[in-house]
């Protein structure tokens, strides 16, 4: 295909086209380099950790909120709080009841995350902060169940596994719109574009916090 990056390659392409009748594109003459080693699914397994909303990628194992509580209090509460309320600037996990239309709403698992499977994916790949990719599948299922239960989205004894997790309907499932291009359409006025302008906010009225270099 023709690439928009094809700066100054036209002459090279023309020459190539004349000589070898090859397609004119910003591509090397060799199409396949034979580099890279074939790798099996089993070899990839320790890195193949992603989980999709349809459940693809979820491993064997299971857990309940009841089992998750002890793990949460040991491995998660120091940052996320005993009740998932968040400590300091670490993120809260539980919705505080304010709607997403409020000013600066709290965006949490309970009111914002569209898929429960994303919890599994994220907890395994990134948590606990400081020892990521260390939890067992059962521990992750239990923690997912516990976080969902803290948000009143699951009973304490409901078993979460690869079959049930994708079926959990999150409250904000329909809360997202795909970007389809520019949403703001400004025009390029040059003269007398506005009658009057007023300053409505000044950085000097904020305490400018200096760096911690």
């Amino acid at each position: 295909m023709f690439s928009s990056m094809c700066d100054g390659c036209l002459m090279r392409c023309l020459i190539l086209a004349a000589v070898a009748m090859v397609a004119c594109a910003d591509e090397p003459v060799v199409a396949e380099w034979g580099l890279g080693r074939p790798i099996s699914a089993d070899e990839i397994k320790p890195w193949d950790i992603d989980v999709r909303p349809d459940g693809v990628g979820l491993p064997e194992g299971s857990g309940t909120a009841e089992a998750g509580e002890a793990i949460f209090q040991t491995k998660c509460a120091s940052c996320h709080g005993e009740f998932g309320e968040g400590v300091g600037r670490f993120p809260p996990l539980v919705w505080d009841g304010t709607p997403l239309t409020a000013d600066r709403p709290r965006k949490t698992v309970g009111n914002f995350w569209p898929y429960a499977t994303t919890l599994w994916d994220y907890i395994y790949r990134a948590m606990p902060f400081g020892n990521a990719q260390s939890l067992t599948s059962d521990e992750v299922y239990a923690l997912v169940a516990y976080v969902l239960a803290m948000n009143d989205l699951l009973d304490e004894d409901t078993v979460v596994d690869a079959k049930t997790l994708p079926k959990i309907e999150m409250p904000n499932r329909e809360g997202f719109i795909r970007d389809t291009g520019p949403d703001i359409h400004a025009s390029r006025c040059m003269q007398n574009c506005v009658q009057e302008v007023r300053i409505i906010s000044r950085a000097s009225q904020h305490r400018s916090v200096d760096s911690g270099e």
């Binding site: 992603d50 989980v51 999709r52 914002f112 898929y115 994303t118 994220y122």
Partner: peptide, 10 residues
Amino acid sequence: RPWETREETA
């Protein structure tokens, strides 16, 4: 299809 990871949803 997209994976809907935390960094593209939450």
